[in-house]
Write a protein that binds this DNA or RNA. Structure first.
Lengths: 251, 251
DNA sequence: ACGGCCGTTCCCGTTCAATGGGAAGCGAGT
DNA sequence: ACTCGCTTCCCATTGAACGGGAACGGCCGT
Protein backbone atom coordinates (compact mmCIF):
# COMPACT_ATOMS: atom_id res chain seq x y z
CA UNK A 1 0.00 0.00 0.00
CA UNK A 2 1.09 3.57 0.60
CA UNK A 3 1.91 4.21 -3.02
CA UNK A 4 4.93 1.97 -2.87
CA UNK A 5 5.73 0.12 -6.05
CA UNK A 6 6.33 -2.99 -3.99
CA UNK A 7 2.83 -2.88 -2.57
CA UNK A 8 3.52 -2.76 1.15
CA UNK A 9 1.87 -0.63 3.77
CA UNK A 10 3.74 1.99 5.73
CA UNK A 11 3.13 -0.07 8.84
CA UNK A 12 4.82 -3.12 7.38
CA UNK A 13 7.80 -1.03 6.43
CA UNK A 14 8.08 0.45 9.89
CA UNK A 15 8.09 -3.04 11.36
CA UNK A 16 10.74 -4.12 8.87
CA UNK A 17 12.86 -1.14 9.86
CA UNK A 18 12.50 -1.97 13.54
CA UNK A 19 13.34 -5.59 12.77
CA UNK A 20 16.74 -4.58 11.44
CA UNK A 21 17.77 -3.83 15.01
CA UNK A 22 18.86 -6.62 17.29
CA UNK A 23 20.87 -7.50 20.37
CA UNK A 24 24.03 -7.47 18.29
CA UNK A 25 22.99 -4.71 15.91
CA UNK A 26 22.05 -1.81 18.12
CA UNK A 27 23.18 1.18 16.05
CA UNK A 28 23.20 1.52 12.26
CA UNK A 29 23.24 4.14 9.54
CA UNK A 30 20.09 4.99 7.63
CA UNK A 31 21.58 3.45 4.51
CA UNK A 32 22.27 0.19 6.34
CA UNK A 33 18.71 0.08 7.56
CA UNK A 34 17.48 0.61 4.03
CA UNK A 35 19.60 -2.21 2.70
CA UNK A 36 18.57 -4.62 5.44
CA UNK A 37 14.91 -3.70 5.15
CA UNK A 38 15.00 -3.83 1.38
CA UNK A 39 14.01 -0.21 0.90
CA UNK A 40 15.23 2.26 -1.74
CA UNK A 41 17.83 4.58 -0.28
CA UNK A 42 15.82 7.77 -0.47
CA UNK A 43 12.80 6.05 1.00
CA UNK A 44 14.83 4.63 3.86
CA UNK A 45 16.27 8.03 4.68
CA UNK A 46 12.90 9.70 4.58
CA UNK A 47 11.27 7.06 6.77
CA UNK A 48 14.10 7.01 9.28
CA UNK A 49 13.87 10.78 9.56
CA UNK A 50 10.16 10.50 10.14
CA UNK A 51 10.61 7.85 12.83
CA UNK A 52 13.24 10.00 14.51
CA UNK A 53 10.82 12.93 14.52
CA UNK A 54 8.26 10.79 16.29
CA UNK A 55 10.87 9.57 18.78
CA UNK A 56 10.62 5.92 17.79
CA UNK A 57 14.24 6.12 16.70
CA UNK A 58 17.08 8.23 18.12
CA UNK A 59 20.01 9.80 16.32
CA UNK A 60 23.21 9.69 18.34
CA UNK A 61 26.00 12.26 18.04
CA UNK A 62 25.13 12.78 14.36
CA UNK A 63 24.84 10.07 11.78
CA UNK A 64 23.90 6.75 13.35
CA UNK A 65 20.49 5.63 14.44
CA UNK A 66 19.27 3.48 17.30
CA UNK A 67 15.99 2.49 18.90
CA UNK A 68 14.37 5.39 20.71
CA UNK A 69 13.53 5.58 24.36
CA UNK A 70 10.05 6.65 23.37
CA UNK A 71 9.49 3.40 21.53
CA UNK A 72 10.62 1.52 24.59
CA UNK A 73 8.25 3.55 26.72
CA UNK A 74 5.25 3.12 24.44
CA UNK A 75 5.82 -0.60 24.10
CA UNK A 76 6.18 -1.20 27.82
CA UNK A 77 3.64 0.87 29.62
CA UNK A 78 0.48 -1.13 29.66
CA UNK A 79 2.06 -4.19 28.09
CA UNK A 80 1.16 -7.66 29.21
CA UNK A 81 4.84 -8.54 29.40
CA UNK A 82 5.58 -5.82 31.95
CA UNK A 83 2.69 -6.80 34.19
CA UNK A 84 3.67 -10.42 34.13
CA UNK A 85 7.29 -9.57 34.74
CA UNK A 86 6.48 -7.31 37.67
CA UNK A 87 4.39 -9.99 39.30
CA UNK A 88 7.02 -12.63 38.67
CA UNK A 89 10.23 -10.77 39.49
CA UNK A 90 10.20 -11.12 43.29
CA UNK A 91 9.62 -14.85 42.99
CA UNK A 92 12.27 -15.18 40.31
CA UNK A 93 14.73 -13.40 42.55
CA UNK A 94 13.94 -15.81 45.32
CA UNK A 95 14.48 -18.81 43.06
CA UNK A 96 17.68 -17.33 41.77
CA UNK A 97 18.97 -16.64 45.27
CA UNK A 98 18.39 -20.27 46.22
CA UNK A 99 19.58 -22.00 43.07
CA UNK A 100 22.27 -19.56 41.96
CA UNK A 101 21.71 -20.46 38.32
CA UNK A 102 19.77 -18.92 35.42
CA UNK A 103 16.09 -18.24 35.96
CA UNK A 104 13.80 -17.33 33.07
CA UNK A 105 10.25 -16.38 32.31
CA UNK A 106 8.82 -17.06 28.85
CA UNK A 107 5.54 -16.72 26.99
CA UNK A 108 4.09 -18.17 23.82
CA UNK A 109 4.30 -15.76 20.89
CA UNK A 110 3.62 -16.59 17.27
CA UNK A 111 4.42 -20.30 17.65
CA UNK A 112 7.69 -19.59 19.40
CA UNK A 113 9.09 -19.20 22.90
CA UNK A 114 9.62 -15.54 23.74
CA UNK A 115 11.68 -14.83 26.83
CA UNK A 116 10.51 -11.83 28.78
CA UNK A 117 12.80 -11.96 31.80
CA UNK A 118 16.04 -13.58 32.76
CA UNK A 119 18.10 -13.47 35.91
CA UNK A 120 21.61 -14.88 35.98
CA UNK A 121 24.08 -15.69 38.67
CA UNK A 122 27.66 -14.59 38.02
CA UNK A 123 28.92 -18.13 38.58
CA UNK A 124 26.23 -19.82 36.50
CA UNK A 125 27.09 -21.62 33.28
CA UNK A 126 26.22 -21.00 29.67
CA UNK A 127 22.77 -19.87 28.57
CA UNK A 128 21.87 -18.72 25.10
CA UNK A 129 18.50 -17.23 25.99
CA UNK A 130 18.16 -13.46 25.96
CA UNK A 131 15.47 -11.12 27.10
CA UNK A 132 13.29 -10.43 24.06
CA UNK A 133 14.97 -13.42 22.41
CA UNK A 134 13.24 -16.44 20.90
CA UNK A 135 13.68 -20.18 20.72
CA UNK A 136 11.55 -22.84 18.99
CA UNK A 137 8.79 -24.27 21.17
CA UNK A 138 10.09 -27.82 20.95
CA UNK A 139 13.68 -26.85 21.64
CA UNK A 140 13.60 -25.24 25.07
CA UNK A 141 12.25 -26.38 28.40
CA UNK A 142 10.01 -23.31 28.65
CA UNK A 143 8.74 -23.90 25.14
CA UNK A 144 7.90 -27.53 25.88
CA UNK A 145 5.76 -26.44 28.83
CA UNK A 146 3.99 -23.81 26.72
CA UNK A 147 3.48 -26.32 23.91
CA UNK A 148 2.20 -29.02 26.26
CA UNK A 149 -0.41 -26.69 27.74
CA UNK A 150 -1.15 -24.72 24.60
CA UNK A 151 -4.20 -25.15 22.37
CA UNK A 152 -4.61 -28.44 20.53
CA UNK A 153 -4.31 -26.82 17.11
CA UNK A 154 -0.98 -25.20 18.01
CA UNK A 155 0.38 -28.58 19.11
CA UNK A 156 -0.70 -30.25 15.88
CA UNK A 157 0.71 -27.44 13.80
CA UNK A 158 4.09 -27.62 15.52
CA UNK A 159 4.20 -31.42 15.50
CA UNK A 160 3.39 -31.41 11.79
CA UNK A 161 5.81 -28.67 10.85
CA UNK A 162 9.54 -29.13 10.42
CA UNK A 163 11.14 -29.77 13.83
CA UNK A 164 14.68 -28.54 13.70
CA UNK A 165 17.22 -29.62 16.27
CA UNK A 166 18.98 -26.89 18.23
CA UNK A 167 21.33 -29.40 19.80
CA UNK A 168 21.99 -33.07 19.01
CA UNK A 169 19.65 -34.09 21.83
CA UNK A 170 16.68 -31.92 20.89
CA UNK A 171 13.63 -34.16 20.55
CA UNK A 172 12.48 -33.85 16.94
CA UNK A 173 10.59 -37.10 16.50
CA UNK A 174 6.86 -36.23 16.53
CA UNK A 175 5.85 -39.41 18.32
CA UNK A 176 8.47 -39.04 21.07
CA UNK A 177 7.63 -35.37 21.36
CA UNK A 178 3.96 -36.17 21.72
CA UNK A 179 4.70 -38.56 24.59
CA UNK A 180 7.00 -36.01 26.17
CA UNK A 181 4.27 -33.36 26.08
CA UNK A 182 1.73 -35.75 27.61
CA UNK A 183 4.23 -36.41 30.39
CA UNK A 184 4.61 -32.67 30.99
CA UNK A 185 0.85 -32.25 31.30
CA UNK A 186 0.73 -35.18 33.72
CA UNK A 187 3.69 -34.13 35.90
CA UNK A 188 3.38 -30.35 35.67
CA UNK A 189 7.10 -30.07 35.02
CA UNK A 190 9.70 -30.87 32.39
CA UNK A 191 13.33 -31.78 32.93
CA UNK A 192 15.08 -31.43 29.62
CA UNK A 193 18.76 -32.37 29.60
CA UNK A 194 20.75 -31.22 26.58
CA UNK A 195 17.74 -29.94 24.67
CA UNK A 196 19.23 -26.50 24.04
CA UNK A 197 22.88 -27.03 24.88
CA UNK A 198 24.67 -30.29 25.56
CA UNK A 199 26.20 -29.01 28.80
CA UNK A 200 23.03 -27.90 30.53
CA UNK A 201 19.65 -29.10 31.70
CA UNK A 202 16.50 -27.02 31.47
CA UNK A 203 13.79 -27.36 34.10
CA UNK A 204 10.47 -25.63 33.50
CA UNK A 205 7.03 -25.38 35.07
CA UNK A 206 3.81 -23.72 33.93
CA UNK A 207 2.61 -20.42 35.38
CA UNK A 208 -1.17 -20.33 35.55
CA UNK A 209 -3.53 -17.42 35.73
CA UNK A 210 -6.91 -17.16 37.41
CA UNK A 211 -8.75 -20.36 36.62
CA UNK A 212 -5.99 -22.58 35.35
CA UNK A 213 -4.98 -21.13 31.99
CA UNK A 214 -1.22 -21.34 31.40
CA UNK A 215 0.11 -17.87 30.56
CA UNK A 216 3.84 -18.37 30.92
CA UNK A 217 6.61 -20.79 31.73
CA UNK A 218 9.16 -20.41 34.49
CA UNK A 219 12.44 -22.18 33.97
CA UNK A 220 15.92 -22.70 35.32
CA UNK A 221 19.04 -23.74 33.47
CA UNK A 222 21.42 -25.95 35.45
CA UNK A 223 24.75 -27.52 34.65
CA UNK A 224 24.02 -31.02 33.45
CA UNK A 225 25.57 -32.71 36.50
CA UNK A 226 23.42 -30.83 39.00
CA UNK A 227 20.54 -32.76 40.57
CA UNK A 228 17.22 -31.29 39.51
CA UNK A 229 15.07 -32.03 42.54
CA UNK A 230 15.63 -28.75 44.35
CA UNK A 231 15.08 -26.75 41.18
CA UNK A 232 11.74 -28.46 40.57
CA UNK A 233 10.61 -27.65 44.10
CA UNK A 234 11.74 -24.02 43.94
CA UNK A 235 10.18 -23.44 40.53
CA UNK A 236 6.89 -25.01 41.58
CA UNK A 237 6.69 -22.83 44.65
CA UNK A 238 7.59 -19.72 42.68
CA UNK A 239 5.06 -20.48 39.95
CA UNK A 240 2.35 -20.86 42.58
CA UNK A 241 3.37 -17.52 44.06
CA UNK A 242 3.28 -15.79 40.69
CA UNK A 243 -0.14 -17.24 39.94
CA UNK A 244 -1.42 -15.87 43.23
CA UNK A 245 0.16 -12.48 42.52
CA UNK A 246 -1.37 -12.04 39.08
CA UNK A 247 -4.67 -13.35 40.38
CA UNK A 248 -4.63 -10.83 43.23
CA UNK A 249 -3.93 -7.96 40.83
CA UNK A 250 -7.19 -8.68 39.03
CA UNK A 251 -9.95 -8.43 41.58
CA UNK B 1 0.67 13.23 5.11
CA UNK B 2 -0.64 9.89 3.89
CA UNK B 3 -3.65 11.37 2.15
CA UNK B 4 -5.26 12.24 5.43
CA UNK B 5 -7.38 15.37 5.44
CA UNK B 6 -5.77 16.37 8.72
CA UNK B 7 -2.30 16.31 7.23
CA UNK B 8 -0.54 13.83 9.51
CA UNK B 9 1.79 11.07 8.53
CA UNK B 10 0.95 7.44 9.07
CA UNK B 11 3.82 7.28 11.54
CA UNK B 12 2.41 10.05 13.69
CA UNK B 13 -0.92 8.30 13.76
CA UNK B 14 0.62 5.03 14.78
CA UNK B 15 2.37 6.77 17.65
CA UNK B 16 -0.87 8.43 18.67
CA UNK B 17 -2.58 5.06 18.66
CA UNK B 18 0.15 3.55 20.82
CA UNK B 19 -0.07 6.54 23.14
CA UNK B 20 -3.68 5.74 23.92
CA UNK B 21 -2.44 2.75 25.89
CA UNK B 22 -1.18 3.20 29.42
CA UNK B 23 -0.57 1.51 32.74
CA UNK B 24 -4.22 1.95 33.61
CA UNK B 25 -5.61 1.56 30.09
CA UNK B 26 -4.24 -1.73 28.87
CA UNK B 27 -7.11 -3.02 26.71
CA UNK B 28 -9.53 -0.99 24.61
CA UNK B 29 -11.88 -1.34 21.67
CA UNK B 30 -10.87 -0.06 18.26
CA UNK B 31 -13.54 2.63 18.52
CA UNK B 32 -12.14 3.81 21.85
CA UNK B 33 -8.69 4.04 20.34
CA UNK B 34 -10.08 6.08 17.49
CA UNK B 35 -11.78 8.50 19.84
CA UNK B 36 -8.74 8.94 22.05
CA UNK B 37 -6.40 9.31 19.10
CA UNK B 38 -8.76 11.69 17.32
CA UNK B 39 -9.22 9.47 14.28
CA UNK B 40 -12.37 8.87 12.24
CA UNK B 41 -13.98 5.58 13.15
CA UNK B 42 -13.38 3.82 9.86
CA UNK B 43 -9.78 4.98 9.80
CA UNK B 44 -9.19 3.81 13.35
CA UNK B 45 -10.59 0.39 12.56
CA UNK B 46 -8.52 0.05 9.43
CA UNK B 47 -5.32 1.12 11.15
CA UNK B 48 -5.90 -1.07 14.18
CA UNK B 49 -6.48 -4.03 11.88
CA UNK B 50 -3.25 -3.24 10.07
CA UNK B 51 -1.30 -2.99 13.32
CA UNK B 52 -2.77 -6.28 14.48
CA UNK B 53 -1.68 -7.88 11.21
CA UNK B 54 1.86 -6.70 11.85
CA UNK B 55 1.73 -7.94 15.43
CA UNK B 56 2.21 -4.52 16.99
CA UNK B 57 -1.22 -4.92 18.55
CA UNK B 58 -2.99 -8.07 19.71
CA UNK B 59 -6.69 -8.92 19.67
CA UNK B 60 -7.84 -10.84 22.71
CA UNK B 61 -10.75 -13.30 22.71
CA UNK B 62 -12.44 -11.24 20.00
CA UNK B 63 -13.17 -7.57 20.18
CA UNK B 64 -10.68 -5.79 22.41
CA UNK B 65 -7.18 -4.75 21.55
CA UNK B 66 -3.96 -4.54 23.55
CA UNK B 67 -0.28 -3.94 22.94
CA UNK B 68 1.32 -6.82 21.09
CA UNK B 69 4.18 -8.95 22.31
CA UNK B 70 5.89 -8.33 19.02
CA UNK B 71 5.98 -4.60 19.71
CA UNK B 72 7.49 -5.32 23.11
CA UNK B 73 10.06 -7.55 21.49
CA UNK B 74 11.02 -5.11 18.75
CA UNK B 75 11.31 -2.24 21.20
CA UNK B 76 13.46 -4.13 23.66
CA UNK B 77 15.97 -6.17 21.76
CA UNK B 78 18.84 -3.90 21.05
CA UNK B 79 17.48 -1.02 23.11
CA UNK B 80 19.69 1.14 25.23
CA UNK B 81 17.27 0.77 28.12
CA UNK B 82 17.59 -3.01 28.19
CA UNK B 83 21.39 -2.92 28.15
CA UNK B 84 21.51 -0.41 30.94
CA UNK B 85 18.96 -2.32 32.93
CA UNK B 86 20.79 -5.60 32.53
CA UNK B 87 24.02 -4.07 33.73
CA UNK B 88 22.30 -2.36 36.63
CA UNK B 89 19.94 -5.06 37.85
CA UNK B 90 22.37 -7.10 39.96
CA UNK B 91 23.54 -3.96 41.75
CA UNK B 92 20.00 -2.74 42.21
CA UNK B 93 19.07 -6.07 43.75
CA UNK B 94 21.96 -5.75 46.15
CA UNK B 95 20.90 -2.25 47.17
CA UNK B 96 17.35 -3.38 47.57
CA UNK B 97 18.34 -6.36 49.69
CA UNK B 98 20.25 -4.07 52.04
CA UNK B 99 17.86 -1.14 52.24
CA UNK B 100 14.55 -2.99 51.83
CA UNK B 101 12.97 0.06 50.22
CA UNK B 102 12.28 1.16 46.64
CA UNK B 103 15.21 1.25 44.24
CA UNK B 104 14.93 2.91 40.84
CA UNK B 105 16.91 3.55 37.69
CA UNK B 106 16.03 6.52 35.51
CA UNK B 107 17.28 8.23 32.35
CA UNK B 108 16.79 11.61 30.75
CA UNK B 109 14.25 11.53 27.94
CA UNK B 110 12.76 14.52 26.21
CA UNK B 111 13.28 16.88 29.17
CA UNK B 112 11.72 14.46 31.60
CA UNK B 113 12.71 11.69 33.98
CA UNK B 114 11.93 8.30 32.48
CA UNK B 115 12.10 5.35 34.86
CA UNK B 116 13.44 2.21 33.29
CA UNK B 117 13.61 -0.10 36.28
CA UNK B 118 12.15 -0.30 39.73
CA UNK B 119 12.50 -2.83 42.51
CA UNK B 120 10.25 -2.68 45.54
CA UNK B 121 10.25 -4.34 48.89
CA UNK B 122 6.88 -5.67 50.07
CA UNK B 123 7.14 -3.68 53.29
CA UNK B 124 8.30 -0.46 51.65
CA UNK B 125 6.13 2.64 51.67
CA UNK B 126 4.41 4.62 48.95
CA UNK B 127 6.06 5.29 45.60
CA UNK B 128 4.35 6.79 42.59
CA UNK B 129 7.06 5.96 40.07
CA UNK B 130 6.35 3.24 37.54
CA UNK B 131 8.51 1.46 35.05
CA UNK B 132 8.10 3.33 31.75
CA UNK B 133 6.58 6.17 33.77
CA UNK B 134 7.69 9.78 33.82
CA UNK B 135 8.18 12.61 36.29
CA UNK B 136 9.37 16.18 35.76
CA UNK B 137 13.13 16.62 36.04
CA UNK B 138 12.89 19.11 38.89
CA UNK B 139 10.38 17.07 40.84
CA UNK B 140 12.14 13.78 41.52
CA UNK B 141 15.47 12.94 43.08
CA UNK B 142 16.55 11.05 39.96
CA UNK B 143 15.52 13.94 37.79
CA UNK B 144 17.48 16.41 39.87
CA UNK B 145 20.63 14.35 39.38
CA UNK B 146 20.03 14.11 35.63
CA UNK B 147 19.29 17.82 35.45
CA UNK B 148 22.36 18.74 37.49
CA UNK B 149 24.65 16.76 35.21
CA UNK B 150 22.79 17.38 31.97
CA UNK B 151 23.83 19.82 29.26
CA UNK B 152 23.81 23.52 30.11
CA UNK B 153 21.10 24.31 27.56
CA UNK B 154 18.77 21.72 29.06
CA UNK B 155 19.24 23.22 32.50
CA UNK B 156 18.49 26.74 31.25
CA UNK B 157 15.46 25.54 29.35
CA UNK B 158 14.02 23.78 32.38
CA UNK B 159 14.86 26.61 34.77
CA UNK B 160 13.20 29.08 32.43
CA UNK B 161 10.12 27.00 31.72
CA UNK B 162 7.19 26.64 34.09
CA UNK B 163 8.23 24.64 37.16
CA UNK B 164 5.18 22.90 38.50
CA UNK B 165 5.11 21.51 42.00
CA UNK B 166 4.31 17.83 42.39
CA UNK B 167 4.12 18.15 46.15
CA UNK B 168 4.05 21.24 48.42
CA UNK B 169 7.78 20.86 49.02
CA UNK B 170 8.90 20.56 45.41
CA UNK B 171 11.53 23.21 44.75
CA UNK B 172 10.10 25.47 42.05
CA UNK B 173 12.05 28.66 42.66
CA UNK B 174 14.67 28.93 39.87
CA UNK B 175 17.32 30.47 42.12
CA UNK B 176 16.91 27.88 44.85
CA UNK B 177 16.82 25.13 42.24
CA UNK B 178 20.02 26.43 40.68
CA UNK B 179 21.79 26.32 44.05
CA UNK B 180 20.39 22.83 44.67
CA UNK B 181 21.76 21.61 41.33
CA UNK B 182 25.18 23.09 42.02
CA UNK B 183 25.18 21.26 45.35
CA UNK B 184 24.34 18.00 43.60
CA UNK B 185 27.26 18.43 41.20
CA UNK B 186 29.53 19.18 44.15
CA UNK B 187 28.40 16.33 46.40
CA UNK B 188 27.55 13.72 43.76
CA UNK B 189 24.31 12.97 45.53
CA UNK B 190 20.93 14.51 46.28
CA UNK B 191 18.77 13.96 49.33
CA UNK B 192 15.32 15.28 48.50
CA UNK B 193 12.79 15.06 51.32
CA UNK B 194 9.17 15.54 50.30
CA UNK B 195 9.93 16.49 46.72
CA UNK B 196 7.58 13.92 45.22
CA UNK B 197 5.49 12.87 48.19
CA UNK B 198 5.36 14.47 51.60
CA UNK B 199 5.86 11.15 53.38
CA UNK B 200 9.04 10.07 51.66
CA UNK B 201 12.60 11.10 50.93
CA UNK B 202 14.32 10.47 47.62
CA UNK B 203 18.04 9.81 47.49
CA UNK B 204 19.74 9.71 44.10
CA UNK B 205 23.24 9.43 42.64
CA UNK B 206 24.55 9.69 39.07
CA UNK B 207 25.52 6.62 37.04
CA UNK B 208 28.45 7.41 34.79
CA UNK B 209 29.62 5.68 31.66
CA UNK B 210 33.13 5.31 30.30
CA UNK B 211 34.83 8.67 30.74
CA UNK B 212 32.48 10.44 33.15
CA UNK B 213 29.33 11.14 31.17
CA UNK B 214 26.19 10.71 33.28
CA UNK B 215 23.85 8.27 31.55
CA UNK B 216 21.37 7.49 34.30
CA UNK B 217 20.37 8.13 37.89
CA UNK B 218 20.06 5.53 40.60
CA UNK B 219 17.71 6.34 43.42
CA UNK B 220 16.05 5.03 46.54
CA UNK B 221 12.82 6.16 48.16
CA UNK B 222 12.80 6.00 51.95
CA UNK B 223 10.19 6.82 54.56
CA UNK B 224 10.85 10.37 55.65
CA UNK B 225 11.97 9.39 59.16
CA UNK B 226 14.66 6.99 57.94
CA UNK B 227 18.26 8.23 58.17
CA UNK B 228 19.73 8.58 54.70
CA UNK B 229 23.40 7.83 55.39
CA UNK B 230 23.28 4.13 54.61
CA UNK B 231 21.25 4.72 51.47
CA UNK B 232 23.81 7.20 50.16
CA UNK B 233 26.62 4.71 50.75
CA UNK B 234 24.79 1.82 49.15
CA UNK B 235 23.73 3.85 46.14
CA UNK B 236 27.23 5.21 45.59
CA UNK B 237 28.73 1.75 45.69
CA UNK B 238 26.08 0.40 43.34
CA UNK B 239 26.50 3.27 40.88
CA UNK B 240 30.23 2.62 40.79
CA UNK B 241 29.55 -1.04 40.10
CA UNK B 242 27.12 -0.26 37.31
CA UNK B 243 29.61 2.13 35.72
CA UNK B 244 32.24 -0.58 35.75
CA UNK B 245 29.79 -3.09 34.28
CA UNK B 246 28.72 -0.92 31.35
CA UNK B 247 32.31 0.06 30.76
CA UNK B 248 33.36 -3.59 30.69
CA UNK B 249 30.67 -4.43 28.15
CA UNK B 250 32.26 -1.99 25.69
CA UNK B 251 35.82 -3.05 25.11
C1' DA C 1 -40.79 -7.82 20.67
C1' DC C 2 -38.99 -3.49 19.76
C1' DG C 3 -35.87 0.34 19.21
C1' DG C 4 -31.90 2.85 20.40
C1' DC C 5 -26.99 2.51 21.08
C1' DC C 6 -22.54 1.16 19.82
C1' DG C 7 -18.81 -1.46 17.85
C1' DT C 8 -17.64 -3.35 13.78
C1' DT C 9 -17.34 -4.42 8.77
C1' DC C 10 -17.78 -3.43 3.95
C1' DC C 11 -18.00 -0.38 0.02
C1' DC C 12 -16.18 3.06 -3.12
C1' DG C 13 -15.05 7.59 -5.41
C1' DT C 14 -11.65 11.07 -4.34
C1' DT C 15 -7.21 12.89 -3.59
C1' DC C 16 -2.89 14.21 -2.08
C1' DA C 17 1.01 12.20 0.69
C1' DA C 18 4.19 9.09 -0.17
C1' DT C 19 7.18 7.41 -3.49
C1' DG C 20 11.74 6.71 -5.55
C1' DG C 21 14.88 7.94 -9.30
C1' DG C 22 18.29 11.12 -9.92
C1' DA C 23 21.62 14.66 -8.87
C1' DA C 24 24.34 17.15 -5.89
C1' DG C 25 26.69 17.83 -1.32
C1' DC C 26 29.75 16.10 2.13
C1' DG C 27 33.40 13.57 4.50
C1' DA C 28 36.72 10.06 5.03
C1' DG C 29 40.03 7.09 3.32
C1' DT C 30 43.80 6.19 -0.10
C1' DA D 1 42.80 14.48 -6.63
C1' DC D 2 40.05 10.80 -6.80
C1' DT D 3 36.81 7.32 -5.19
C1' DC D 4 33.33 5.59 -2.35
C1' DG D 5 29.49 5.73 0.61
C1' DC D 6 26.20 8.24 3.34
C1' DT D 7 23.16 11.80 3.18
C1' DT D 8 20.12 15.60 1.52
C1' DC D 9 17.29 17.95 -1.75
C1' DC D 10 14.21 18.01 -5.71
C1' DC D 11 9.98 16.83 -8.20
C1' DA D 12 6.66 14.51 -11.41
C1' DT D 13 3.84 10.53 -10.91
C1' DT D 14 0.33 7.62 -8.96
C1' DG D 15 -2.19 4.35 -6.48
C1' DA D 16 -2.73 3.46 -1.44
C1' DA D 17 -4.86 5.52 2.06
C1' DC D 18 -8.73 8.06 3.30
C1' DG D 19 -13.24 8.64 5.39
C1' DG D 20 -18.20 9.32 4.72
C1' DG D 21 -21.89 6.40 4.67
C1' DA D 22 -24.60 2.25 4.82
C1' DA D 23 -25.47 -2.07 6.81
C1' DC D 24 -24.77 -5.77 10.20
C1' DG D 25 -25.10 -7.61 14.82
C1' DG D 26 -24.94 -7.85 19.71
C1' DC D 27 -26.53 -5.79 24.03
C1' DC D 28 -29.62 -3.52 27.09
C1' DG D 29 -33.62 -1.37 28.98
C1' DT D 30 -38.42 -0.99 28.34
Amino acid sequence: MANSTSGESVTERIVRILETFGTDRTVQTAAEIGRRAGLPSSTAHRMVAELVDCGLLDRDEEQRVRLGMRLWELALRGSRALRLRQAALPFMEHVQARLREHTQLAVLENDETLFIERLSHPHAGANITRIAGRLPLHASSSGLVLLAHGPEELRERVLAGPLEAVSPETVTDPARLRRLLAGIRRDGVVVAPGTVEAVSTGVAVPVREGRGEVVAALSAVLPRATPTGRAVEELRAAAAGISAAIGAHRP
